[in-house]
């Protein structure tokens, strides 16, 4: 879902996320069945508890069953006056691009019509610059994590990303610039016993990452839709390309979500990250009923293990902070890495 379209309309895109705790989801359970993933139910729970009362509209994408059904519920019970869903093909072929381009154009038209605004090409180009700036800065921040002792922890990076989802983008860029500047100064060096990558389902709770890091793991990269998949690829901002076209290309061709076909595209990118960030082990957190991730997990695990990278699989509920059993598993995983290092 290209946020740029909303921004260029003079509105503030807020990324819907759930609660940073494992809530009872009582409100949400009254509306969606227990096999709706807890990420979506957690979002819905916050909506029902009036935590998103400031929203004027909801734009979603038909990415998987749970969000598309959340959109149905949203519309049926009329949570906001404006509701729109964008269709996203699962392939990256020419005809898939035509379809998706049409969908992005459709979102633009609908926003213009509903809110009586004009989204000019000029505004879109300006927005693309702003959003690309975020991507460049995040790339710089992530690059710093390639060093032996990065200036920032994985939990802190997730905090930063979370802020970006909810803030006016220009303001976020300003803060991010300061952060990258400070982080580059070489004054801070975070140490950890092992370099880890986190991947899997949507993750927003920094406490979860902190648990891993408190036990001695150092999260140096992720393969998450709330992490690299969010910012990885730039939008083509050359003046000769139509901005809607540029956006559609970027969002469909972006670092693929597990829903995309063929899956190898994502596997290869994940393996490349493991190499580039010199990852010792991977922590895969799969939110229960996140079936896209669940189907790919055994296939990705085998590929990682062939590369000699052990994988810790954690079946969790969205919002989990990493207590009890999760902590035990992470600790055992780190102890196992230690044992391997000694051999």
């Amino acid at each position: 879902m290209p946020e740029e379209i909303i921004h260029a309309a003079g509105m503030v895109p807020i990324r819907l996320t759930g609660d940073s705790q494992e809530p009872a989801l009582e409100e949400a359970n009254a509306y969606m069945y227990i096999n709706t993933c807890s990420f979506v139910r957690s979002c819905l729970d916050l909506v029902l508890r009036n935590q998103y009362h400031f929203l004027d509209g909801f734009v979603s994408a038909a990415t998987c069953d749970c969000p598309r059904r959340l959109t149905d519920v949203w519309k049926h019970y009329d949570f906001t006056p404006f509701v729109h869903i964008v269709d996203v093909p699962r392939k990256m072929t020419k005809s898939a691009h035509d379809l998706y381009h049409n969908e992005v154009q459709g979102l633009k038209d609908r926003l213009e019509g509903f809110f009586d605004v004009e989204i000019t090409d000029e505004a879109l180009r300006q927005t693309i610059k702003v959003f690309n700036r975020t991507r460049e800065l995040l790339k710089e921040l992530y690059d710093l994590r390639k060093s032996d002792c990065p200036p920032i922890t994985g939990a802190e990076v997730l905090e930063v990303l979370n802020a970006g989802f909810k803030m006016p983008r220009e303001e976020f860029n300003g803060l991010l610039e300061r952060l990258v500047g400070e982080a580059s100064s070489g004054q801070r060096a975070v140490k950890g016993k092992f370099r880890l990558m986190i991947n899997g389902s949507p993750l927003n709770n920094p406490e979860f990452v902190k648990t891993i890091e408190d036990l001695g793991g150092l999260v140096v990269v992720d393969e998450l839709c709330t992490g690299v998949r969010h910012w990885w690829d730039l939008v083509d901002d050359s003046p000769e390309i139509d901005p809607v076209e540029a956006l559609s290309r970027r969002y469909l061709n972006n670092f693929p979500c597990p829903r995309m076909f063929p899956p190898e595209e994502r596997f290869n990118r994940a393996l490349q990250l493991v190499k580039d960030y010199r990852v010792d082990g991977v922590v895969s957190e799969v939110v229960r009923y996140c079936v896209h991730c669940a189907h790919d997990q055994p296939l990705l695990r085998r590929r990682l293990e062939i590369q000699g990278v052990p994988v810790l699989e954690l079946s969790i509920e969205y919002g989990a902070s990493g207590t009890g059993q999760i902590m035990t598993r992470v600790q055992a995983f780190l102890e196992m890495l230690e044992g391997r290092a000694r051999r």
């Binding site: 269709d87 093909p89 699962r90 005809s95 898939a96 379809l99 049409n102 969908e103």
Partner: peptide, 15 residues
Amino acid sequence: FLDRSYQYSERGVQY
């Protein structure tokens, strides 16, 4: 893999 669009639209049918 046979990919079907979400919406029943002319574009969807085309795809």
